[in-house]
Simulated assay, not measured.
Amino acid sequence: MTVGAETDSEARRRAVMWSDGGDRVIVGPLKGYHHETYAFPLPPESPLRPRYAWGKLRSPRSGVLWYDRRCFASEDRLLLMLKGRVDRVPESVEVTPGVYLQGFVEGRPPGGGPLPGRPLSGHHEGQLARLFQQVVAIKTDEFDDLPRTCLPDGHPVLDDDSTVFLNRLTDFTATQVYDRHAEEYGELFERLGVRRRALEALALPAGRLANRPFALVHGDLHRHNFIVDHAGDLWTIDWELAMIGDPLYELATHLHLMRYSTRDAQRVGTMWAGAVEEVRPGASREWQRDLPYLLAYKRVQSVFTDVVRAAVGLGPRNDPHRVVLPVAAWKVRRVLEAAKGPLGLTQVPTVPQVMSAYAGWLKRSGGATAP
């Protein structure tokens, strides 16, 4: 986190207004793609006191690309609805019409930092099981009053059709990530062996997946969206990608992002199935058979999104041949390796080959600009 102004934005001015100490104590903007976010100590009269010592204000960044299909227009309104239903999620209050203040959870990610593959502690895994139960127990019609953004028809699928749900996710990635950027990045995708037909191949015939009762899913349960507070308890933050859909998607996303060992992934999967089945019979129906289909989608989705993210990060102000390009190439190569099977790759490009593909694209395009 950084202290001091980087911009004189409306979000920062609002943060100064609601902070205890004015501009000098504002922290931010915090790291984040979709929102401009500032944290600050709360004054004694704040509606979030004494539960939180710090608060945060978030403002959507204009013109950013959403790489994930989501359902709720306002994360803050969703958090208001979750209060009292889900343990240890940030509280949100509407301080002025349309402006929300969130409680800032002080702590650290579990494990003390980014440790890919490391499982959660037994205590935190138990709290994660409770989270799985609480979100799957909420009836979907309780979300009817929240503004929706789901594609393609403006509202979430509520017919409990798991096959349709997965196919709509695949269609979103094909149309909103690949097609939207094909003109600018099509040659780059081609050189990396990433083709649209890999997404088309993920589409399943009707009835291929077992139908599980739809539920709320967080949709982004990775290590940096968990915070361990000073009491040692696990909080879940950043609900901006939440949606209503197949509850198995929650497990698939979590396993994909956490990169557990095979043994730990099986144990967490069994834990998830037992937890959700206890409160919502049928929520784990045929989960072991269907999980590979959702994992295949998540792995392919990561390739399509990370190829574009890496290209956007290699802007004209960076020197791609020293630091930025090798790191980006390593990340892209890693997701290509993970998705080798569903992408139909017989051989994954090496890091130098990925670097060469980006270097050639940069030379011809003059660099990328953020969407």
Rank of each mutant, 00 (worst) to 15 (best):
L251Q: 09
H224I: 01
R208E: 15
G186F: 02
R148N: 10
L202H: 11
V268N: 03
V177P: 04
P247Y: 08
G84F: 02
S19T: 10
H230V: 06
P147Y: 07
G28M: 05
A215V: 01
G193E: 09
A210M: 06
A15Y: 04
R322A: 11
S62V: 12
V135C: 05
E91V: 12
K363V: 05
P110W: 06
F189A: 13
A328S: 12
S9E: 10
T170Q: 02
A283E: 09
P90G: 11
V16F: 11
G84L: 02
A73R: 15
T175N: 11
V93E: 14
G98F: 11
A338N: 03
C150N: 06
D179A: 15
E75M: 03
P320S: 06
K139Q: 15
L221I: 01
R118L: 14
T346M: 01
E142S: 11
Q134T: 05
L188F: 07
L166A: 08
G366R: 10
G122N: 12
P205A: 14
L241A: 04
E10W: 07
P114V: 13
A265F: 00
P352E: 08
P116T: 13
L115P: 00
M81H: 13
V279E: 03
L325E: 12
G22I: 07
L336N: 03
E75V: 06
K363H: 08
V276E: 03
R85V: 01
I26Y: 06
D160K: 01
R130H: 02
V99Q: 13
A242V: 03
P110D: 13
R191D: 10
G207N: 13
V64Q: 11
K139G: 15
F165L: 01
R208W: 02
H123V: 11
N318A: 07
A215T: 09
Q301T: 04
K340Y: 00
H35T: 11
G315L: 01
L57Q: 02
F40R: 07
V332K: 07
W239D: 10
A39E: 09
D159L: 01
G63H: 06
G207W: 13
R299P: 00
L251G: 12
L166T: 04
L101A: 14
G269F: 03
G341N: 04
L166Q: 09
N225E: 08
H34W: 05
L294I: 02
I227C: 07
L30A: 08
T37M: 02
V327K: 09
